[in-house]
C-alpha cells in the first residue's frame, strides 16, 4: 500500500486498509470520496455483506466498491476474509492481544478501534477470551482539534482549572471534548500556560494508544495510562506522575468516587465524564448523585444535540447549580 496518497479526510484508509485482505481493500478503496470522508463505521460479518455507515445513512458494498441500498449486488464476506482480518488486526499475534479480545475490541495504529464479536470462552464464570470471531465493527473516529475552544474559558480561571464533569447521552462527543480539553490544558493557550496532564484511558478512546503511544493529539505535557482501570490508574498517576489535572472517561463505580476524593486531597484537579442527559437525570443515579451531593465538581457541562451533535447545552456552576450559559452553543 502506498502511504502518502490519502488526503486528510480519508487518512483512515492508511491504517484501515492495511487491516483488511487485498480483495476487501479494493472494495473499500473504491468507495466514492464524499462518502469516504464522512464514513463512521465499516461492519464486516462472515457470510454477510459489508455494510458502511456514515452521516446517518448505511449502504451495502458491492464487489466493485459500488454502494447499494439493498444487498443483492453486495460482496459477501468469506471465512477466509475473516481469518485474514483477524490475523492482520492482531499483527499476526493473537497471543499479544488476549486482553483486547477479552474486552471485545482491538485498537489499531491511529487510534481506530475494531469491535469484535464471536463466541465467548468462559473460565470460572468470567470471559477468558473470544473464539470463532466473525463480526468486526471498524470505527473511524476523527479527533476534532479546537472542539473545546467554546468551553475552555468556563473551566479555567486564571491559572486555576476547575473540577469539571461532562454529562451527556452516548454519541454526543464527550470523549472528543475531553480529549481536546486535555490537549489545550497541556499545550496551554493565550492567557494560560500549559500544565501537566494525566489521562487514565481505560477504554483506549481518549488518547487512542497503539502499543502505549497516543495516536491522538492529547498535548505535549500529557501522560497516558492506557487500558488501565480508572480507580487504580488515578492512584498510580498521583503516586508516580505528579499531574496537575487528571482526565478520565465515564465514571460510575463506587471505587471511582474514592479515587477522585484521593486526587482532590492531593490537590489535583479532575476532569471526567458520565452518561446522563442532565443534572436531574444524574441525581437519580446512586453513584453520580453521591458525587453531585458532595459538590466536588465546580463546573458541570451538559452536551446534547439541540444544535447538532456536540452542542454544549448548559454549563452549571457546581456549587450554586446556576446555568452560566444564556443559550446553547455549538
Amino acid at each position: 500500500m502506498e502511504y502518502s496518497r490519502w488526503p486528510s479526510g480519508v487518512a483512515w484508509k492508511r491504517v484501515i486498509l492495511d487491516a483488511l485482505p487485498e480483495n476487501i481493500q479494493r472494495v473499500i478503496d473504491g468507495i466514492p470520496q464524499d462518502i469516504a470522508e464522512s464514513l463512521e463505521e465499516i461492519r464486516i460479518r462472515e457470510g454477510r455483506p459489508i455494510v458502511i455507515h456514515g452521516r446517518g445513512k448505511s449502504y451495502y458494498l458491492g464487489a466493485d466498491g459500488g454502494l447499494w441500498p439493498s444487498p443483492e449486488k453486495a460482496y459477501y464476506v468469506t471465512h477466509r476474509d475473516v481469518q485474514s482480518i483477524l490475523q492482520r488486526i492482531s499483527n499476526y499475534s493473537i497471543y499479544a492481544v488476549e486482553e483486547e479480545l477479552r474486552n471485545g475490541y482491538i485498537t489499531l495504529r491511529g487510534g481506530y478501534r475494531v469491535g469484535l464479536a464471536g463466541k465467548a470462552v468462559l473460565e470460572g464464570g468470567k470471559i477468558k477470551t473470544l473464539k470463532y470471531i466473525n463480526s468486526f465493527n471498524i470505527r473511524i473516529s476523527r479527533e476534532i482539534i479546537g472542539v473545546a475552544d467554546k468551553v475552555i474559558r468556563y473551566i479555567v480561571s486564571g491559572a486555576e482549572v476547575y473540577h469539571t464533569l461532562v454529562l451527556s447521552p452516548p454519541q454526543m462527543g464527550k470523549t472528543t471534548l475531553i480529549r481536546d480539553i486535555a490537549r489545550q490544558l497541556s499545550d496551554g493557550f493565550p492567557g494560560f500556560r500549559g500544565i501537566k496532564v494525566g489521562i487514565v484511558d481505560e477504554r483506549s478512546e481518549i488518547a487512542g494508544c497503539f502499543q502505549g503511544v497516543p495516536q491522538n493529539n492529547v498535548g505535549l505535557q500529557t501522560d497516558v495510562l492506557d487500558a488501565c482501570p480508572k480507580a487504580e490508574g488515578i492512584m498510580m498517576l498521583i503516586r508516580s506522575m505528579s499531574p496537575a489535572v487528571i482526565i478520565t472517561d465515564e465514571i460510575g463505580k463506587a471505587e471511582d468516587v474514592e479515587a477522585i476524593e484521593e486526587a482532590l486531597n492531593a490537590g489535583i484537579k479532575i476532569i471526567t465524564t458520565a452518561h446522563s442527559s442532565d443534572i436531574g437525570d444524574a441525581q437519580r443515579r446512586p453513584i453520580l448523585s453521591k458525587i453531585l451531593d458532595k459538590k466536588i465538581f465546580q463546573r458541570i457541562i451538559v452536551l446534547g444535540s439541540s444544535l447538532g451533535v456536540g452542542t454544549v447545552e448548559k454549563i452549571y456552576d457546581g456549587h450554586t447549580l446556576n446555568n452560566l450559559l444564556d443559550r446553547p452553543i455549538r
Binding site: N91, Y92, S93, Y95, A96, E98
Partner: peptide, 10 residues
C-alpha cells in the same frame, strides 16, 4: 519473546 514479552510476531 512470545510468551514472556508478548512481542508482536513480525
Amino acid at each position: 519473546e512470545v510468551i514472556n514479552y508478548a512481542t508482536f510476531l513480525p
